[in-house]
Amino acid sequence: MQTILGAGGAIGEPLAKELKQYTDQVRLVSRKPQKVNETDILHPADLTSRGEVFKAVEGSDVVYLVIGFPYDIKVWQKEWPALMRNTIDACKQYNAKLVFFDNVYMYDGSAIPHMTEESPINPSSRKGKVRAAIAQILMDEVKQGGLTALIARAADFYGPVKGNTSVLNEMVYKNLLKGKRANWFGSADKKHSYTYVPDAAKGTAILGNTPDAYNQVWHLPTHPNALTGREFVALFGKHMNKPAKISVVPQWMAAAMGLFVPIMKELAEMIYQYDRDYIFDSSKFNTRFDFKPVEYEAGVLDTIRNG
C-alpha cells in the first residue's frame, strides 16, 4: 500500500498516476478524495487531526506527504509542525517509509542563484523558517534511526497544475489568457527555474520506490536552462498568440498591495527569490536516474493546452 497524504493538491493527482506503475494499491487521503486510477482506495480525512493521520497511515508501506496548506503564515505556523510530528509518529508506529515533498524556502538567500541539496539552511522569511523547522524534525528522526524517510524538493512549479498554486500559471498564463499584462515580481531580467509538475510527480514516485534513495535530500528533476521572466512571458505570448506585455511588481508595491489583497501580503516576503537569478540544480537526480527533464517550451505548450 502506498498512501498520498494531501491527494487533492497540485501534486496528488499526477503522483497517483505515476504510482500505478509500482503498485495497484494507492490510498488517496484528503477531505474529499476522488479516484485517479480505477483501483485507488479513497480515504476521507482531516489531516489536522492526529487520530485521523494515524488511521490514514495504518497499513502503508510508503507514505507521501504532499499536502499544501493555504498560503498563510499563521496557518503554516500552526498546522505544519503538528502535521509533520503526527505523520512521523504514525510512520514509526506502522513501520512505513516517508517521502516529504518540500520546497526551497529554507535556503539562504545567497544560495538562490545556484541551489543544490547541500545549500546552506538559513531562511530569511517566516515561511522559510517553518519549512526549515519541519525538515529538521524529519532529518533528526532519520539520524536517530527511528525513521526511514527522504525529502524531495521542487523549485516553484508550473504545468497543468490543479488549483491556483503555480505563480507562473497565475501571473503569466492566466493573465495573458484574459488579455491582460503578465505580472512578474522583482526583476523580469533574472533567470528563474521552474519544476514541471509531471516531472516532479514522476521523480517523487521514483524516489519513493528506490530503496537506496532514502535518508537524504533530493532535488526533483528540473530543466537546467532557466529562462528570465521576460523570456517566459515571450514564450507564453508566442504560443498563445498574445502580446507579450509585462508589468513588474517591486517588493514595496507588493507589500502595499497586501493591504487590500491578502495573497500579495503573503508573497511580499518571498520577492527576494525574484530579484536575483534563481537556479535549481537537480543534477544529482538526473545523473542517478538518467533522467532528462522536460524543456521549458514543451512545458509551456502543455500548460496552454491543459492548464
Results as ranks from 00 to 15, higher is better:
2 Q>M: 14
9 G>E: 05
12 G>N: 08
12 G>S: 13
13 E>R: 08
13 E>T: 11
14 P>N: 06
14 P>H: 05
16 A>S: 11
19 L>P: 09
21 Q>R: 14
22 Y>A: 15
28 L>Y: 10
29 V>K: 01
30 S>Y: 05
34 Q>K: 15
38 E>D: 11
41 I>F: 04
41 I>S: 07
41 I>D: 03
46 D>W: 08
51 G>D: 14
56 A>I: 06
56 A>M: 08
57 V>M: 10
60 S>A: 14
64 Y>W: 07
73 I>C: 01
73 I>D: 12
74 K>M: 06
77 Q>R: 13
83 L>N: 02
83 L>K: 03
87 T>R: 02
88 I>F: 06
89 D>C: 02
89 D>A: 15
94 Y>I: 02
95 N>H: 11
96 A>W: 00
96 A>Y: 06
99 V>I: 13
101 F>D: 02
102 D>Y: 06
103 N>E: 01
110 S>W: 08
112 I>D: 00
113 P>N: 07
114 H>Y: 15
117 E>Y: 01
128 G>N: 11
131 R>Y: 09
132 A>W: 05
134 I>L: 09
137 I>G: 03
142 V>D: 10
144 Q>A: 14
146 G>D: 15
150 L>Q: 13
151 I>K: 11
155 A>P: 01
156 D>A: 05
156 D>G: 02
161 V>Y: 03
164 N>M: 13
164 N>K: 15
168 L>I: 03
169 N>W: 01
172 V>K: 04
172 V>F: 04
172 V>P: 01
174 K>D: 09
174 K>N: 12
175 N>G: 03
177 L>C: 12
183 N>Y: 09
188 A>C: 02
190 K>W: 00
198 P>S: 02
198 P>L: 06
201 A>T: 12
203 G>N: 03
207 L>P: 10
207 L>Q: 09
207 L>R: 11
211 P>I: 04
213 A>W: 08
215 N>Q: 12
217 V>Y: 02
218 W>Q: 04
221 P>I: 07
222 T>Y: 00
226 A>C: 06
230 R>M: 00
233 V>N: 04
233 V>A: 12
238 K>T: 14
240 M>Y: 02
241 N>Y: 11
242 K>P: 06
245 K>S: 12
246 I>V: 08
248 V>R: 15
250 P>H: 15
252 W>H: 11
254 A>G: 09
258 G>S: 09
258 G>Q: 13
259 L>D: 10
264 M>E: 14
265 K>R: 15
272 Y>A: 07
273 Q>F: 00
274 Y>R: 00
277 D>Y: 15
278 Y>E: 00
279 I>E: 14
280 F>Y: 06
282 S>K: 06
285 F>W: 04
287 T>S: 11
288 R>D: 10
293 P>M: 01
294 V>A: 10
294 V>Y: 06
296 Y>N: 05
299 G>Q: 01
299 G>D: 03
300 V>G: 05
300 V>S: 07
303 T>G: 08
